[in-house]
Structure formats: structure tokens, C-alpha cells
Design a protein around this nucleic acid. Structure first.
Lengths: 337, 337
DNA sequence: CTGTTAGCGCTTTCAA
DNA sequence: TTGAAAGCGCTAACAG
């Protein structure tokens, strides 16, 4: 299955010059005479020569590839981030190797190994909900391969991170609920291991505090993001002696599930319960009423993260700084609140 | 920025044996004594040796990577397909290089070049809505790199293709509308250049024919899949002297837009107009009423396409056959019809 | 079972 | 401006 390949030697032979000259001509090296350059370029075109990145990669010990490790990419969030990252990366001549861990720690570890094997020049990672151990990521550090976290970041590693202001986003969401007269605001949060869960919970609490509303532990639930379980938690909340009149969820998919369940129960949204989500995922304007949510600048997250990574790739490891970029969120008030 | 790398020579030197022996031990070659093998494996572990795929790739002139070119990946369809493909690929030790053409022909061409530069061992492609010229894909053929099309296939190239039975899916959808008493079924189709558009239109027409309903050209529209334009077409249909009482759209996002517009106009779905989409995208159970749609086995499409590609990669080009795999669709009847 | 040699396609010294 | 030679890290072929 040997593939037919046109190489630099082929061109050199046909033109009866050395391969180094051909290489120089092809790479736009300054010290090549115009005529040889032209001849080379012409023949290369005719022969449909295509440079072999495999060889270049080995030479330079750079794969010209950055890896992206995300927990999933069916809800629109990660695809949007990836788009932003890909834009920046490919503009700089880098490929993007995407792997989804499927929210599985095991898979994340395996994916990391693949990235390592393939000598990615850097990685962008957003952790799974179950990742507690970071050995597989520390390897990158040890090998001098830059990492940038985004969204689901790791507090224990001193590397650049790109997040949105989860605290403020949650704060604004809950404040909005308070200002529209809600008295018992429940929060269905994410796993407490995730940084975003903690921040959003803090924002929730502080908003209540600011307006002197009691923080009722009964109304604060956290769950593992397994959407099938949402209805259980919602049912629990609704069955409370004093059920909530508003719900702030960790993300939009959770809010969708909650709304679907409540609508099936005949509960009026927002009259009986107002709902606010987080992220402005695809679908938030499809559901009825349209979901009020905290929008994240997904595309920008990807761009910024990729740029931060490229900056590290192109600088000495000694100059790497654990830059922490916090992007702004925007509260989108819609029909559900 | 030279990176610190542990290589086979390092291990060989430390153990005072030849590098070929080390290589053999590492790759599980049979003719290596147990003790040397153990020693090598042990030291490799301690040194945290990681094989360099860059070198292996050059050696074997194989990148161990397959490329996937898709028009977009924000609606859930392509991500699901990619997941299926990735599963099969990584099980076989292949990486996946994903690129989205953003429905732009130019970008598709550029992406194809990147894939070529990187010597992908094969490509999975789903065309943009504007691709008419296939030179950039024929290059792969010429270079002996296998291609498999899926979903948006190219009729002009004799290569394997994986599609769903668009004709039958559309037929079933329209038949369902007829059997539930609809008399004027409109069709908002996709660009006529796309194979899927043609097939779905055929299915639509044949269903009408089977039940002796007139085919009213007034009710058949095709558009470029630019969702912003949907409302224009729907308005046009509704303003007809005899407006339709059912709508079959080329895909779900189109149906969503149509429903949103009609609901805003106060039109009752399905009472006044029944709606049926295609693909069972994310969101079809979020919108109200829930969308009746023709489900595609997205995951399976990806798996089958990847497998077909791997089969070609692992066989001589002379044995390649333009296998045409047609997968079954399933009509999901929900509230919108 | 182990070592030696050569080479994948390219770039990069160092000379000429 | 051009050429010759060395080498990136690995594996495969051929000896021993």
C-alpha cells in the first residue's frame, strides 16, 4: 500500500539541482536566485507536489497540532468554543485534534495519552465532571507542553485559565429573580467538585444576602449533571411544604428538563415558578416560555483560550504565566421569568 | 524551545543494548528474551518514555489520522455522527482531524489542503451546500487516499457513501400527514443541488401521488438553508389564497423556525397546520408542540462511514468498491402533527 | 535472541 | 547562490 508521493528529491532530480535548493525555493528562503525559484515552483505545481508535514513535524519535533479535550459536544456550548479556538489555531497554521471524554475520567486519561503520543504542541482542556486526579494533565507540564483550561478548570494547577464570571452571572440571575418579586428561589446546582458549580452557588447566595433573603438549605440541591435525574430533584422541590417560586439551574439543559417536567405537571411558568438557566444553549429560544439565561461568550472563550495557548507555545516555558482570564456574561431576560 | 524527550536511544544506552532490541521490546515483538523485555519496560516506565508518533508516522508514511470535513457542527446532527466515527476510528488506533467548512466552498477547499498536507490516511466528507466543483476532493482519489461521503454526498464521484433513505423517510412523513387527513401539504426543501434535497422532494411527491393528491407547485419551495429566510417562505405560504394545512420541511432547524414564526402569528399547530421535520435534532422535544420528525441513526452513520473508510485504508486501492450504504430512518410522531 | 545498517522526507548547518 | 552531509526518532531488513 505504498503511496505514490512526489518529493523534493523528485523535483531536484528533474531540475538537476540539489534538494536543499529546492527546499529553500519552496519555503521562500531569501538566498535563492529568481530563476531557480521560478523553475522549482513551476515544476512543483505541475507535479502537484505537496509538502509532507509528517517529515516537517519530525524534523521540528512539533506536530503543529493543538489538542482540545472536552467532556462532550452535543449541547451547543463546546462546539461553539471549539469553533472559536479552531479559528485562531488554523490562522496560525495549527491543526486541532478534538477528543471528547464523554464525562468519563478514564476516557480523559486515555485521550491525554493519545495527545501525548502525537506530540501535540499544546492542549486546551475542560474537565469531566468526575476528574479529581490530575496526574494525566501534569504530565504535559512536566514535558513542557503548555495547557490552558477553559470553562471546567482545575484549581490545583498553575496554568492559564479562561472562564466566565460565573459568580457575577449567577448573582445577576438571582438578583433579577428577587427584583421581580420572587421569595423562595431554589438552586439546582452542579457537582460541588466543579469550580463553576461553586462559583455559581456563591453568586446565588450572595444575591440572596444582598437583599436580605434567607438562605434556605432546603432549596439548594446539587447533582451530577445526569439529566435523567433532574425530574427527581424538581419533584422533591415541588413537594416541599413551602415549594419554591423560582428556580435557578446550573445550566440550560437542566433548566429544559425541569421545565418539561413542570409543564407536564401543569405548573405555569413563570407564573407559579420562574426559571433561569445558564449558558444560553441551543434550544433556549425553542422552549416555551423562552428561557431566561446567562449567556456566555462561547466563541470568544475559544478564541482567547487558543490565543493564550499559542502565546505559550511560542515562548519559553520560563516565561509562562498562569494568566486568569474572566470573560463577561450577559443576562438574557426572556419569558420564563 | 527544544523539548526534553526520552527516546529509545536513551533507554538503549542506559541498558547498554541496541536500540533495535529496545524497539522490539516496546512493540511487543516476539523474539525478545523475557528479561531484556522486562528491563526495557521497567526503565521506560521510570523514565516516562512516550513513543513519538511523529517518527512512526514518517517511517510508515501514515499519519494514523483520518480527516472529517463537515459543513458545521452546531446543530446536533454532525456532532453525533462524528462521535460515532471517532469511536470506530480510535478503536482502530486512528486520530480524527475535524474541520468544519462553515457551509463555505472556499473553506472546504482550504481544509482539504490541510488534510492533504498532513497526509491523512483517509477522509470522511459531507459537502457544503454550495459545493459544485469537486477538484479538491478528486485530489485525494488521485493520490490514493480513500474518501467516504456521508449525508451530503457527491453524485459525481465513485466512492463509498453512507446515507439514510431520504426518499423513504420523506415518503413516510408525508404519508403520515395524508393519513391524518391533511389535504394541502407544503414542502420547504433544501437547495436542489443537494442529493438529500432531491430525494426528500421525490419522496414527498411520490407519497402525494400514491394517495392521488395533486402536486401543487405553489406549495413546493426550495431554499438555501439560511435559516433567517425561513419566515419569508412561510409567510408566503400562509398568504396563499389556499394556504397549506401541513408543512414538511427539509430538516428540523427549518421546522423550528417555521413553528416559531407561525406561533408568533397565532397559528395553531397542529390544528391549523401540522409540521413534520427531518433528522430529530436536539430541540425537537423542547419546542411545543413537540416536533414530529424523521429520525436518522446519526451515531450509526458515523460508525458505518468510519468503518468503510478503515476498510479502504487497509486494502489495496484496486479493491476499493463504491459501496452505497443506505440506513433506515424512523418516523417519530409527536405533537406537531 | 540481538546487533548493524539504512532510510522515511525534510531542513539545517557548514563549506564551497 | 548552491551543494553535501548530517540528523529528527523510529522500524525493518539482514546478518550474526
Amino acid at each position: 500500500m505504498k503511496k505514490h508521493q512526489i518529493t523534493i528529491v523528485d523535483i531536484a532530480r528533474q531540475l538537476n539541482i540539489s534538494k536543499s535548493t529546492v527546499s529553500r525555493a519552496l519555503t521562500g528562503h531569501p538566498r535563492v536566485s529568481e530563476k531557480t525559484k521560478e523553475a522549482v515552483l513551476k515544476l512543483a505545481g505541475e507535479l502537484d507536489y505537496q509538502r509532507n508535514m509528517l517529515a516537517i513535524n519530525l524534523m521540528s519535533s512539533q506536530s503543529h497540532t493543538i489538542g482540545i479535550i472536552v467532556p462532550e459536544f452535543v449541547t451547543s456550548f463546546f462546539p461553539m468554543v471549539i469553533m472559536g479556538a479552531q479559528e485562531v489555531a488554523s490562522k496560525a497554521g495549527y491543526n486541532v485534534l478534538i477528543s471528547q471524554s464523554n464525562e468519563s475520567y478514564e476516557t480523559e486519561v486515555a485521550n491525554a495519552k493519545v495527545m501525548l503520543d502525537n506530540r501535540v504542541d499544546g492542549v486546551l482542556v475542560s474537565l469531566t465532571r468526575e476528574t479529581r486526579n490530575y496526574d494525566h494533565l501534569n504530565v504535559f507540564q512536566r514535558k513542557g507542553i503548555p495547557i490552558v483550561f477553559f470553562n471546567r478548570v482545575c484549581d490545583d494547577m498553575q496554568v492559564p485559565k479562561v472562564v466566565v464570571d460565573d459568580y457575577e452571572g449567577a448573582f445577576k440571575a438571582v438578583e433579577h429573580l428577587i427584583l421581580t418579586g420572587r421569595k423562595r428561589i431554589a438552586h439546582l446546582g452542579g457537582p460541588t467538585s466543579l469550580h463553576v458549580s461553586k462559583k455559581r452557588l456563591e453568586g446565588y447566595k450572595d444575591a440572596l444576602r444582598k437583599y436580605s433573603q434567607p438562605i434556605d438549605q432546603e432549596l439548594i440541591l446539587d447533582y451530577d449533571l445526569n439529566l435523567d435525574k433532574v425530574k427527581i430533584y424538581i419533584k422533591h422541590l415541588l413537594d416541599l411544604p413551602q415549594p419554591p417560586d423560582a428556580l435557578f439551574t446550573i445550566n440550560d439543559p437542566t433548566a429544559f428538563e425541569a421545565m418539561l417536567f413542570m409543564k407536564a405537571k401543569g405548573i405555569k411558568i413563570p407564573e407559579q415558578i420562574a426559571v433561569v438557566g445558564f449558558s444560553n444553549n441551543y434550544g433556549s429560544t425553542l422552549i416555551e416560555p423562552r428561557l431566561t439565561t446567562v449567556a456566555q461568550p462561547t466563541h470568544e472563550i475559544g478564541q482567547v483560550a487558543a490565543q493564550l495557548l499559542l502565546d505559550q507555545i511560542n515562548s519559553d516555558a520560563s516565561e509562562w504565566k498562569p494568566i486568569y482570564r474572566v470573560l463577561k456574561t450577559e443576562l438574557l431576560v426572556r419569558g420564563s421569568s
